[in-house]
């Protein structure tokens, strides 16, 4: 079982490696990756040095170029692919058919992973990516149950990777436009959901009110754990009542499901959070490394105890144990 860990900066990459990552994933400092946040990500030189550091420690480095290319600007995505290959990336994480086609044609020996942003959620879609572009791994969207994942693994020859901890996108990944409507910037093309430039917080009588693009997303009472200002986890007044319409502020923690996911045939477990600090990355990676070590030696998995790191200080196993469709 591989543990795939986030790295938003060179220091985070080293923290992930030292905490027990089997592979780290990172992106360039531009809109070619889906964590295009201010002050985050890697220059070309930083990526080259980061990959070299990972390799010196026997850790693989994956480069996420997983946004959808804008018309007229494809050269930006082509350059990212070429530069990541030149830097020694062990795999590229891609979502757009055009980037997959370009990478497969231009760099035929390069290992390709299909990003969660592609939303490949059934065997036919996965076979298409494998047969058309030689993709060797699919990062499955966070809408599948464990039994569905087991079924997909049985029906395809592609490796599968699933998220086990971190920010939980509950929408159709790669297609969600909620943030685009509120801000005019697309998570899928500009690489950032709820862009910081459109977010505001205000203290009002002990409450914190968060807004996105001028729309009120939430209002947290004094002492109430807070969450990110994303529309999918906002609290709204609707004709059906007042509250969380889609999802509460909560993070995924599938630590207790690792044995079931392993038995389902999953190849790799992924931790979300390239936008988080070194303390998050070191703590979460070490916790999941401990679980995997315990499982490998036949012991029961320890609890992660990572609530403090979680949005809203609450966790869920998400769709892995869903009772809805």
């Amino acid at each position: 079982m591989e543990l795939i860990c986030p790295a938003g900066t060179p220091a985070s990459l080293e923290a992930a490696v030292e905490a027990g990552a089997d592979a780290v994933y990172c992106g360039f400092r531009d809109e070619t990756n889906a964590r295009n946040f201010p002050g985050l990500n890697f220059s070309r030189e930083e990526l080259r040095r980061g990959i070299a550091f990972a390799h010196r420690h026997g850790v693989k480095a994956l480069v996420a170029i997983n946004t959808f290319a804008r018309a007229g600007a494809f050269s930006l995505w082509q350059a990212a692919i070429d530069d990541a290959v030149a830097a020694g990336a062990d795999a590229l994480i891609l979502a757009d058919l055009a980037t997959l086609a370009y990478a497969a044609r231009r760099h035929p020996g390069q290992r390709l992973h299909v990003s969660v942003q592609a939303g490949a959620a059934n065997p036919d879609a996965i076979r298409f990516y494998a047969e058309s572009f030689g993709a060797q791994r699919i990062v499955l969207p966070r809408v599948l149950g464990v039994t569905e994942i087991a079924s997909i693994v049985r029906e395809t020859s592609c490796e599968t990777e699933v998220f086990v901890f971190g920010g939980l996108c509950v929408m159709e990944e790669g297609r969600c436009s909620l943030s685009s409507y509120a801000t005019g910037k697309s998570p899928n093309m500009h690489g950032v959901c709820s862009p910081a430039g459109n977010v505001a917080y205000a203290e009002r009588d002990g409450r914190v009110v968060s807004t996105l693009g001028g729309f009120t997303i939430n209002s947290f009472d004094r002492g109430e754990p807070a969450g990110y200002p994303t529309l999918c986890k906002g609290r709204f007044v609707t004709p059906h009542g007042t509250g969380y319409t889609f999802e509460e502020p909560v993070s995924l923690d599938a630590g207790v499901l690792l044995p079931a996911l392993r038995d389902a045939g999953v190849t790799a477990f992924k931790i979300e959070g390239r936008q988080r600090g070194r303390a998050y990355i070191a703590g979460v990676v070490r916790s999941f490394r401990d679980i995997l070590t315990a499982l490998d030696s036949g012991r029961s998995a320890p609890m992660t105890g990572l609530a403090a790191m979680s949005e809203g200080q609450a966790n869920t196993v998400g769709a892995y144990r869903k009772a809805w469709r």
């Binding site: 220091a11 201010p38 002050g39 505001a200 807070a226 600090g277 303390a279 403090a308």
Partner: peptide, 29 residues
């Protein structure tokens, strides 16, 4: 982790969030 502090309400931020994130990420690195 700054986000964890924010979730716990022991950290509050007002103003330019792009500048805030840039500072946090620069310091963290």
């Amino acid at each position: 982790d700054g986000d964890a502090l924010f979730f716990s309400r022991t950290l509050s931020i007002e103003g330019d969030m792009e500048a805030t994130l840039a500072l946090r990420n620069a310091l963290d690195d």
